[in-house]
Design a protein around this nucleic acid. Structure first.
Length: 260
DNA sequence: TTCCATGTTCCGCA
DNA sequence: TTGCGGAACATGGA
């Protein structure tokens, strides 16, 4: 379920449970989850260490362990589980055993996620060309607006592009555009400044709202589009009908009446 | 059985 | 150069 609010929730979960404990074993259960690192190297550099800091940028989570940082990306189905005992979660791909008998499992059913080591989160963000994190306090409307300037193409495509803004995914982009009454296919150069401001503030409001609900979309207010992602549904904000299309290769829901 | 999925990347084409 | 459509990846659930 990993868009920004989910990954923020995972980051807090990691920080709450898995810091300052010695890693006594690193169990890579499926090597395919590792990104450009050999299993032996991954294990060697983490075993015996303690994680002592967690950071997030967009959908990427980083946890510092000595000289290196664990990097996790959750793909479509990634998750974390901290537990005690021998019952590893079904789709565990990497399990960290801590002294004291607890474990942190990185689960990923569909294997679109990845685990790796990086020298630093900042260097990784630069190397990958990731855009700013929308919740970074230093990320202002003016910076947001500059990122959209001189571009064409559908607004949804831009908001989905991680090299422009890092962290938004299919559900949250649809939600932001629904709540700002903007059609997902509207060209960005045909969006007025007051609408761009609305997108910026609504984006932050929705993300913070979702984080307050621990990244669980199902707990978002009933008037959110999230609960009405079905062709033919009644729009919870007007008398329109929910329609479905494809933008940026992704199934897109929007209200055929109030989103222009 | 068939279709779909909250992500990312790569390729070809306009 | 920019943007977009399509396919691929792996796998469970409706």
């Amino acid at each position: 379920m990993p868009e920004l609010p989910e990954v923020e929730t995972y980051a807090r979960y990691f920080a709450r449970h898995a810091l300052h404990q010695r890693v006594v074993r690193v169990d890579v259960r499926d090597e395919r989850i590792l990104d450009e690192i050999r299993r032996e190297t991954f294990v060697r550099k983490l075993k015996g260490r303690e994680f002592d800091e967690v950071r997030r940028h967009g959908k990427h989570l980083f946890a510092r362990a000595g000289e290196t940082w664990l990097h996790l990306h959750f793909g479509m189905t990634g998750d974390l589980a901290y537990y005690r005992g021998d019952e590893a979660p079904r789709f565990s791909k990497v399990i960290f055993d801590f002294e004291g008998g607890t474990h942190l499992a990185f689960e990923d059913m569909r294997l679109f996620g990845l685990a790796a080591l990086v020298d630093s989160p900042d260097a990784f963000v630069i190397a990958k060309g990731l855009g700013p994190d929308p919740l970074d306090p230093a990320f202002t409307f003016d910076r947001f607006d500059a990122l959209l300037a001189r571009r064409r193409g559908a607004i949804k495509s831009l908001l989905m592009s991680q090299e422009i803004i890092a962290g938004l995914g299919n559900l949250y982009v649809d939600e932001i555009l629904f709540q700002t009454s903007i059609h997902p296919k509207r060209a960005v150069d045909r969006i007025r400044e007051n609408e761009r401001r609305a997108v910026f503030t609504t984006m932050r409001r929705i993300l913070n709202e979702a984080i307050r609900r621990h990244g669980r979309e199902t707990e978002l207010p009933g008037r959110y589009l999230f609960h009405h992602r079905e062709t033919g549904e009644r729009c919870p904000r007007c008398d329109g009908t929910i329609k479905r299309t494809v933008v940026f290769g992704r199934t897109t829901y929007y209200c055929g009446s109030h989103q222009k």
